[in-house]
Design a protein around this nucleic acid. Structure first.
Lengths: 345, 345
DNA sequence: CTGAAAGCGCTTACAG
DNA sequence: CTGAAAGCGCTTACAG
């Protein structure tokens, strides 16, 4: 006779299988030292009763919540979607669940909001996306609470704090090489805001690719930008009205590249016939404009999966995770996406 | 002396405040019948100890998880971001947390995936987005588990199941009126896929606005589409090569409108000078293309907030929610966003 | 290889 | 207006 009404508990399973609840617990948690026949019997009953252990009970007794938190600031940021998708799928595979929280990076009660979530939910780990992963207040709140964190593409790595990222410098080099191999020589570059480290790294990759081809960056072809559509459009207006126009533009993110496209169109300059354009990010929009943008795809979903794995691994005390562990800072491979905004000159 | 090590519990608060844990519980849950001075004393200690009740303990004892689930299929769908943002913010205000889960609408183990989440987490409510909110299997799994649901923009309303939506017919009428009032008479329409009810409603609004102006829809100017960029582009190629071109195109979603923009650009037809274009959705991309798109903004965040509120309200048994409650099916106001893709002819 | 006991930190009846 | 007791459904030591 199963418990009346509600869904089955571990007691129902134990009674039905003729074992103690401890044994059921062992089987469900893949603990060693259970006779094969016992295990099978338990699993059969679990199946028959459609039993699933209740998270709140496991959490209260065992101190693990099976919850991973994802903190983000700007929900419209292109990467949030992919990060979340990767994280939620990997969580499911590992028996975890993803709790999301949107936080203003400069909210006065940031600390309180984090404390509330952490103390109430006790997530087993937290994934931090930019710019929250570089916010000292956020980092401090999480450190104080003892919540394991993984930083996604932080400005700089912190000793002892796991992170996942891609290689911006190398990616910028590669996509510059795409342009160079198409015969472009006069390549303009639109920078990101100086306070973001990605800006510098992408510029560095651009310059390094140029130099490797025996070219020197032309200061006239370097324009400032701030990663917004408008700044890309304005920079392009400047660049495309030079006496000697560039034949290609490398906008250091997609939003600005979209701005370049808009400017070119307005000036009646056909892309890619008269001008090649590349971006960086592979935002959802990049493939939906005309012409579709050649760009760099950040391995966001893979990074998120890796982050979840690192967080779950931390749960097992055997994986101490020394502060100098090289595995603490992962760099994942990116992808160059060649579409129709680039052409040989 | 507080409990050594770990964070404070209700026992610590009770001891410190000189009351029983039951009284602390009363204060924290805003239960009536606590003397004002007692309440203040308790709150003072709560503040001093930075005490927050643990979700797992509350959930296990009280049967409420303070978790709301958000189920979605396509993470890149424009509306998911706004829905999630609205839901997560409202959850925070109400002391809840949002757990997200991405599900394939046609996964063979859909039922199992839902059962796993529901039985493990016991969310107090679930928000379903299209197309999951119209998936009989999903609906059945949730009904069987007794989890309260709110459907976001379902194809059709189900008796007794709460829903939130906007008025597609009316919105389509209004945006058609925008074109009509600009002097356009030859207005083309690109339909959505026949199996989505939004397609029919938007077309209906279009026709009704035309008729109200004494115009009859011209079959030559009605093209099929399927809500994809490609279908919009192809439909536009057809329309713009007619002997007598339309002066405006109403694409029944933004992705298709973006396709129209691409086609016009390719044909050298300047928008909005020679052709006005309107979409529907106000997707993130709509404002980032050139020219920025005139479109309809769905009140996604507001709908999500309303959904959370309905779910939280259900928790209180006093709100029975009769199957014929008119409040069960909410219709929220939309917004017409006029940008630069439309001009008087 | 298996189990009986205690306890995680709250809320729910039930008293007074 | 306030409290003592029981219990939610698991896991953690601890035995054997």
């Amino acid at each position: 006779m199963s418990s009346r009404g509600g869904s089955p508990t571990i007691v129902d399973v134990a009674r039905e299988a003729g074992v103690s609840i401890k044994t059921v617990s062992r089987v469900l948690n893949h603990e060693p030292g259970v006779h094969e026949s016992t295990r099978e019997q338990v699993l059969k009953v679990v199946e028959a009763l459609r039993y699933r252990p209740k998270q709140s009970a496991r959490s209260l007794a065992g101190g693990r919540s099976f919850l991973i938190g994802l903190l983000y600031y700007d929900p419209s940021a292109a990467f949030v979607g992919s990060v979340q998708q990767g994280a939620t799928l990997r969580c499911r595979e590992l028996g975890y669940h993803l709790v999301v929280e949107s936080l203003h990076n400069d909210a006065p009660d940031l600390r309180q909001q984090i404390d509330r979530m952490v103390l109430a939910l006790r997530p087993d780990g937290m994934i931090l996306t930019p710019p929250l992963c570089d916010n000292p207040e956020v980092l401090a709140a999480l450190r104080d609470s003892g919540t394991p964190c993984v930083l996604m593409s932080p400005e700089r790595d912190l000793p002892g704090v796991p992170s996942v990222r891609m290689d911006d410098v190398h990616a910028a080099e590669e996509i510059t090489n795409v342009l160079l191999s198409l015969g472009h020589q006069r390549i303009a570059f639109i920078k990101g805001p100086p306070d973001q480290s990605a800006s510098g790294m992408r510029y560095q990759g651009f310059v390094s690719a140029l130099r490797a081809h025996g070219l020197t960056p032309d200061p006239d072809l370097i324009q400032p930008g701030d990663f917004t559509f408008a700044s890309g459009r304005d920079a392009a207006h400047q660049l495309l009205s030079r006496r000697q126009r560039p034949t290609a533009v490398f906008a250091s993110n997609d939003d600005m590249a979209l701005g370049v496209l808009a400017a070119a169109q307005r000036l009646g300059l056909p892309v890619p016939a008269e001008l090649s354009v590349v971006g960086f990010d592979d935002s959802p929009t990049a493939g939906l404009v005309w012409p579709p943008l050649t760009t760099v795809r950040q391995p966001m979903a893979a990074m998120a999966r890796a982050a979840v794995e690192m967080l779950v691994a931390v749960q097992r005390p055997d994986m101490a995770g020394a502060p100098d562990d090289p595995e603490l800072h992962k760099v994942l491979p990116h992808e160059i996406v060649v579409r129709d905004s680039t052409r040989a000159r």
